[in-house]
Computed example of a mutant assay.
Amino acid sequence: MQIDGHHALTYVVARIAGMEKQQAEKLAYSAQYVDEATNSNPVRFKNGAMYDRIASAHKMLDYRNSSQLANHLSWIPFHFLPGNQGLPAGESPQGHFTKRLVCFPDSPISRDMLRMVMKYREQPFGLHMFGIAMHVYADTFAHQGFAGITHEINEVEEIEPVGHPHIQDKGLWARVKDEFLNFSLSSVAPLGHGPALSFPDRPYCHWSYLDSEDNLVVRDNPQIFSDAANQMYKAIRCYLAGDNTMVLENYDNIPGVQMNVIRQAFETIIHEEGEDRHKDWLHWIAMNKFGFGEEKIQFIAKGKGSWKQAARGKAIPIFGSEDLVAYKYREEFLHSDWKYFHDALKTFRLEIVRDILPEYGICVA
């Protein structure tokens, strides 16, 4: 998913689920910030204090640029949670180990992830951590069929539109056709859904492709995204109820009227750029199209109004260094949303890689 899904959709389903506005904003900001936290350098303060952090994303501005992407440690825990082909712990899929790494929607691993984050519900970073989990959980739907490694299992061929006029017209589809005329598929690194470009993340696309085993895969993104929204809604209901079991089947679906509006948004907000689709979603929220009131929200990743600047202030160059900067230390930093997010990020990655995945026989960096 892109910012329209991870920020706006997360906010919408949280509000429909009954989460109050301030909490929903924090949840949605955390879900989207997973895609913004691209720096892993320690933060230095003028008084000598330091704060360590990790990156949860790499800006994939060009899906063909694999030199830096291939070994990035963020892909599996934060964007391509292994699915074990939908099998529970103790059962392994037939075939090569890499098949365990392929994303599977709402897998037993993803349910274990949701239960894990519930352990931290009462921590200061608990809501931030649940927002991170909402990002990862949503991507198990959008990224299904792909793995967060560089491997031929991600290779695709013959991407085609399926009965959907929007991507057959002048815009996206024509540009993708040009892309493939200028760059062969072999030049696209088989990392994640790189060979499929951004089709998995576009909520309006109906498309098909041949996977690495020459199976025809037909994807109905509006339905996939609707399924993700419904399951996110149930997970948030569990969170609000303090229900650590995460048995989502015990909770009702999103009410039909509101689900219809969400589905309409997926199918009719069709800008090529995620940022443009995000603006339309925010407009729909402000117009009370989703039924929980006229509300104005925003997402500012950096600069004035961002969590980052509120926590650290402005950078101060370190004397004698061209690259290093420091920040004026304030006690408020320890209780800032930005620090809580990174506390949650580090805890989340450790629990996934150290504890949850090994239960499924999966060992990753």
Rank of each mutant, 00 (worst) to 15 (best):
G242P: 10
D280A: 11
K296I: 12
P317F: 00
G242Y: 06
V261Q: 12
D323M: 10
D276A: 15
M246I: 01
W284L: 14
F290L: 11
A326G: 12
A310V: 03
G303S: 05
N250K: 15
E273N: 12
K314Q: 08
N253S: 14
E273L: 13
S306V: 07
M287Q: 15
S321L: 04
N244Y: 10
L248H: 01
W284Q: 15
L324K: 10
S321M: 02
P317Y: 00
S321H: 04
I262S: 10
A315L: 00
G305V: 07
A286N: 07
L282V: 04
K279Y: 03
D252V: 09
E322H: 06
K304D: 09
G293W: 04
F290Q: 11
K296M: 05
G256F: 11
E295S: 03
S321T: 09
L248T: 06
E294L: 02
H283F: 09
V257A: 11
N253R: 13
D252S: 13
E294I: 04
D280W: 10
Q264A: 09
E275I: 13
G313E: 01
N288R: 09
I285D: 02
A286V: 00
H278F: 05
Y251F: 12
D323K: 14
R263F: 10
K304C: 00
D252Q: 14
Q258R: 06
H283V: 11
G256W: 05
N253M: 11
D280F: 09
S306I: 08
A241E: 12
G320S: 09
F299Y: 15
V247A: 12
Q258A: 04
D323P: 00
R312T: 02
G291D: 06
N250D: 15
I318T: 05
S306P: 07
K314H: 03
K304M: 04
G303Q: 03
L240P: 06
E249S: 09
L240Y: 03
G242T: 04
G305P: 08
K279H: 09
Q258V: 00
K279Q: 14
N253D: 14
V247R: 14
M259L: 15
W284A: 13
Y251S: 11
K308W: 03
G274C: 01
K302T: 06
K308Y: 01
R277L: 07
Y251V: 10
I270E: 05
D323Y: 08
D280C: 10
R263W: 05
R312G: 00
E294A: 14
G313N: 04
E275G: 13
F292W: 03
M259V: 05
E272D: 13
L324F: 11
E295I: 13
K302I: 02
E267T: 04
K289W: 06
K279M: 10
R277T: 07
V247C: 06
M246W: 02
N244D: 07
G320T: 10
E267A: 06
D280G: 00
W284Y: 14
P255I: 08
V247Q: 15
N260L: 06
